[in-house]
Design a protein around this nucleic acid. Structure first.
Lengths: 101, 101
DNA sequence: TTCCATACCTAGTATTGCTAGGCAATGGAA
DNA sequence: TTCCATTGCCTAGCAATACTAGGTATGGAA
């Protein structure tokens, strides 16, 4: 979900995605390449991302990923799941206090 | 963290913990026994829980778990981690909209 | 007696985050 | 010129773990 969200605003290549995630999360998520690249491959295999090779301004090759329609839909679904999940966690963490009478 | 939180109010045995988690989460977390029992064993090995055998009112054996001091401290730390984690996810999920000018 | 609910357990599988490497090109420093 | 840092990609293998799919045992109800 994090990777999909990072690609929501615009397509990007792996290295930039890692930096974007680190920046947006205020450093909380500093994901190593060994985590992100396999995720990108899995998401592409699942048709949630598409990719093509590009040249950076100084001539380096890059693989640029973009959300597909399925990817956008999946992100929306994951957002909903996240809200339900975090609400449930919140309920589990706070209910004991509500029980005291 | 979920299991620790379920034991915060009072000690309980495995089966009751599963029901308590299901109840508190409004059915969102319906954890199978194959998930919870190994977790209980791991938490006890890590000294976060202690256990003893009891007899239920109708005579069935039960293993009742309780938070240790380390368990309470660990739960507190996990709560803090959860808040940071969920805040970071929230930031990742909402920032794209903030970027539009 | 047979079945269900309670109550516990674990072997094995599938997933996945991460470590620890490797490859390649570029630009600047020594 | 040579070397290293940075950018940029990749993967094999380890470790953790959620879950499936079984198993055991007891008490009460049908």
């Amino acid at each position: 979900m994090i990777v999909l969200a990072a690609l929501e605003a615009a397509p990007a290549h792996g290295y930039a995605i890692i930096e974007e995630i680190r920046r947006r999360s205020g450093g909380a998520f500093d994901l190593p390449e060994g985590t992100v690249y396999p995720v990108l491959h899995r998401l592409e295999t699942s048709q949630l991302l598409s990719s093509h090779w590009e040249k950076s301004p100084i001539g380096r090759r890059r693989r640029v990923y973009a959300l597909t329609k399925h990817g956008s839909a999946s992100l929306a679904a994951r957002r909903t799941s996240w809200v339900q999940f975090s609400s449930a966690i919140e309920a589990l963490l706070t209910e004991p206090k509500l029980c005291r009478t």
